[in-house]
Every structure is written in structure tokens, then in C-alpha cells.
């Protein structure tokens, strides 16, 4: 800031009333700027600590058998989380089959016909739903599926994950579709293409990169969920690809290993956490690439 000028201005027009000493003002400015910068550093310290520890502690556990073997009992060497990796992929896949069409569909509705009263209600509901705790959704899936079937199952876990996907996906889809220029829609309509086909073949097609990005981020988020799986998919010591059987997942496995009193299980928790972060990071990376390709188009 130009101190001399503010000084004159203050003297003549008395605009900056609390002029005081310029040094004090500059110092305050400097201190507050420093504090804000410190906030950035403070926010990033835990992030780097988490990432560093997961990588440095988890890397020792990683081996081929860690990815392919079943969990070993306490005290036994070796063993892996193969069934948990497969279980997570299986349930996230099932959840995507339910959640992606519903979430993307709701997003298309919001973008295409969302300016009416129903649209506003749906949009607001989606925003609010995004804040519902995942544990509550687990309880819902329990009531909907586990209780009537008297059985913990992958399907129940998948339904919970699907419900969690819908609201964020709907809002992201709407945003992506609204980014498509109106002129493209008009170009298609002016060619005598019906409105519905314009929406599907031109508008959605153009937003596809963004939609893939949103879908992958939703899937990555679902892969990291633990709470809604605890009493829906439960856990399983063995391989399972049956939708109506209990199923292991990486996140529940990490939880069980972490709260155990055994040192070697703690190591496995870090290893499984590294697997999970690689999975989520990989999905997010692909999502970014998809988004990048879109912005070039």
C-alpha cells in the first residue's frame, strides 16, 4: 500500500478513519496474511502425514500374496486381503448399476426440466441428501434388505452405497449438462431432430466426458465408505461373489485390523489402507483425465 498517499487522503478527507499509525496497520496486515498462510500449512500437515504414513508403512505389507490371498489368522505369517479387494469392487460395481442410472437420470431431469417447482424441490432435496450421514443410510439398507431377507448381503451394502451416490451425482450431472452451450442444442433442433433425441444424442453426448468424471468420483467415494457396510454386507473371511451373501470389503477390513490389539494386523491395516488409496487415487486420476479431455473438446 502506498502509505504516503493514504496519509494525505486521511488528513484531507478523513476517509480511512482508523488510520492510526501506518506501521501498525501494515504490521496487522502482515500478521494476518501470515496467519492465513499458516492456516494453509496447518491444513496440509495432516494430509501429508496421512499420505506419508500410509505409503511408508503400507508398502512393507504389499506383495503379490497380499493382493491374492485370504486373510491369515492372528500370528500366522502371510495372508492377504484379496477377498476384501474383490468384495469392494463387487459391491461398488453393484452399487453403480443402481446408483449411476438413478443419479445421472435425476441430473438430466434437473438440467432439462429443473426450472419448475418440482425441479427446485428435487435440487434442494439432493443438496440436503448429500449431507445425510452414511451410517443412517446403512440403517436404511438394513431395514430394507437385511431384515426382510434375514441375511447380511453384498446387495444390502450395494444399495446403501447406491443411495449415497445419487445426490452428488445428480448435482454434478446437472452442472455438466448445463455447461453444454445452448447453441448446440439449437443446431440439432434446427435440423429437425426431436427434442428428446437432441437431449440424448447431442447434449448428453457432448457432456459425456464430464459425466464420466462425475461418475468415477462418485464411485471412488463409495469405495471409501465403511459405516454403511458394517451391518449390511458385514464381512466375510472367504471369497464371495454372491450378491445375497455377506461380503468382505477393504474398508471394513482396515477397521477390523486397526482396532485389533495385534501388531502384525496393524501392519496389514496400513497395507490395506494403501490398497484403498491406490484404488481411490486411480479412479480420481482417470476422472481427471476424462475431465481434461472434455475441456479440450
Amino acid at each position: 500500500m502506498n502509505m504516503a498517499m493514504t496519509n494525505v487522503a486521511a488528513g484531507q478527507y478523513a476517509i480511512p478513519r482508523r488510520v492510526g499509525s501506518h506501521r501498525a496497520r501494515a504490521v496487522t496486515n502482515g500478521v494476518m496474511t501470515g496467519l492465513c498462510a499458516a492456516a494453509v500449512a496447518l491444513a496440509l500437515v495432516p494430509l501429508f502425514s496421512v499420505l506419508w504414513l500410509v505409503v511408508s508403512k503400507g508398502i512393507h505389507s504389499l506383495s503379490l500374496s497380499f493382493f491374492t490371498k485370504l486373510p491369515a489368522p492372528v500370528g500366522e505369517l502371510g495372508g492377504g486381503v484379496g477377498n476384501a479387494i474383490v468384495g469392494t469392487l463387487f459391491m461398488v460395481g453393484l452399487a453403480s448399476c443402481i446408483g449411476l442410472p438413478l443419479g445421472v437420470g435425476a441430473g438430466i431431469f434437473l438440467a432439462e426440466r429443473g426450472d419448475g417447482k418440482l425441479g427446485h424441490v428435487v435440487r434442494f432435496t439432493a443438496e440436503v441428501l448429500a449431507g445425510v450421514p452414511s451410517i443412517v443410510v446403512g440403517v436404511v439398507a438394513y431395514g430394507l434388505i437385511v431384515l426382510p431377507m434375514r441375511h447380511f448381503s453384498a446387495m444390502a451394502g450395494a444399495v446403501a452405497l447406491a443411495i449415497l451416490m445419487i445426490p452428488t451425482l445428480a448435482r454434478a450431472t446437472e452442472e455438466m449438462i448445463r455447461l453444454v452451450p445452448r447453441s448446440l442444442r439449437e443446431a440439432s433442433l434446427a435440423l429437425g431432430v426431436p427434442a428428446w433425441r437432441t437431449s440424448l444424442s447431442v447434449v448428453l453426448r457432448t457432456a459425456l466426458g464430464g459425466l464420466i468424471n462425475a461418475a468415477l468420483l462418485a464411485i471412488a467415494r463409495a469405495a471409501g465408505e465403511t459405516a454403511p457396510l458394517l451391518f449390511t454386507a458385514l464381512n466375510n473371511q472367504y471369497w464371495n461373489l454372491h450378491p445375497l451373501q455377506p461380503t468382505a470389503s477393504l474398508t471394513v477390513q482396515i477397521y477390523n485390523y486397526a482396532i485389533s490389539p495385534y501388531e502384525d494386523w496393524h501392519d496389514k491395516a496400513w497395507g490395506a489402507a494403501l490398497c484403498l488409496l491406490i484404488l481411490i487415487g486411480g479412479l480420481s486420476l482417470i476422472a481427471r483425465l476424462a475431465a481434461g479431455r472434455r475441456s479440450q473438446a
Binding site: 442410472p101 438413478l102 437420470g105 435425476a106 438430466i108 431431469f109 434437473l110 432439462e112 426440466r113 429443473g114 418440482l118 425441479g119 424441490v121 428435487v122 432435496t125 439432493a126 441428501l129 445425510v132 443412517v136 443410510v137 440403517v139 436404511v140 438394513y142 431395514g143 430394507l144 431384515l147 443411495i163 445419487i166 445426490p167 445428480a170
Partner: peptide, 22 residues
């Protein structure tokens, strides 16, 4: 698409009913 949009509202209903019944 209206049906799919309405499904979002339905989800809230399902959450309330499922928790309340349990």
C-alpha cells in the same frame, strides 16, 4: 427423467419410513 428426478424425493421418504419402522 421426471420419474428419475422424483426418485430423489422417494429416497428421502424411504429413509424416514425405514428408520421410523425400525
Amino acid at each position: 427423467i421426471t420419474l428419475l428426478g422424483g426418485a430423489v424425493l422417494l429416497v428421502v421418504g424411504i429413509i424416514v419410513v425405514a428408520c421410523a419402522r425400525l
